[in-house]
Nucleic acid binder design. Structure first.
Length: 203
DNA sequence: TTCAGGATGTACT
DNA sequence: GTACATCCTGAAC
């Protein structure tokens, strides 16, 4: 498991560093794992796209002020959940949004959560649109608002640098250098000058 | 393969 | 009442 200190530094750097790491989700007797392929940084201090812009503090945003590594999960567009990890020091509202994943362990269960069918039964369209969006990430990994505020270090949800750290078989495809790309964030057209910040990282 | 449009509930003004 | 860090469907090409 990555140490909590991984999340305590600069938010943009943390977003960059999270790409290629592994998200591990445990519930009941089930363990799911997936590689993080896409992230975005949100910084309340000066970022109009962030829910806590200008240190706004409400019932929803209070989780952003929690210690680093805390899970921030909220509902968007009335029907989808988004998963973030809180960054920087406690009291400093910032987070990294997990926008995309590549399944690595128990793919059949992830497919079941997402499409109510097994991996082998997915259509080409479903394979292409498996976990390539924040709402899809939460659906596949069985993440909802019940996890909002979960402290980092819980066995229910954490991040590790290698699958072996979670007792899972490694994925040889993941060896080698990362082809990391940088771009503008998505779906924040209202955020004025912040729409152009190059705070999105993806493979 | 791309596009437009609708679903849907909560937070905030 | 308005906006929202989205996803899916169906139709056209």
């Amino acid at each position: 498991m990555l140490p909590q200190a991984f999340f305590s530094g600069d938010t943009v750097e943390t977003a960059r560093a999270l790409v290629g790491k592994y998200l591990v989700r445990r519930y009941g007797r089930i363990t799911l794992a997936a590689r993080i392929t896409e992230t975005e940084a949100y910084v309340g201090r000066m970022d109009k796209a962030c829910h806590a812009y200008g240190y706004r503090k409400t019932e929803r945003t209070k989780t952003l002020y929690a210690p680093p590594g805390t899970a921030y999960v909220y509902l968007i567009y009335g029907m989808h959940c988004c998963l973030n990890f809180v960054t920087e020091g406690e009291g400093e509202p910032a987070a990294v949004l997990v926008r995309g994943l590549a399944p690595r362990y128990n793919q059949d269960i992830i497919a079941e959560n997402r499409f109510h069918c097994k991996c082998g039964e997915m259509t080409a369209y479903q394979k292409k649109n498996f976990l390539n969006g924040p709402g899809k990430v939460c659906a596949g990994m069985n993440i909802d608002r019940a996890l909002n505020g979960l402290p980092y270090g819980s066995q229910e949800l954490f991040v590790c640098g290698r699958l072996e750290e979670a007792g899972l078989p490694p994925c040889p495809d993941d060896d080698g250098p990362l082809d990391l790309k940088v771009g503008k964030r998505i779906g924040i057209d209202y955020a004025e000058e912040a729409v152009d910040f190059p705070w999105r990282f993806y493979l």
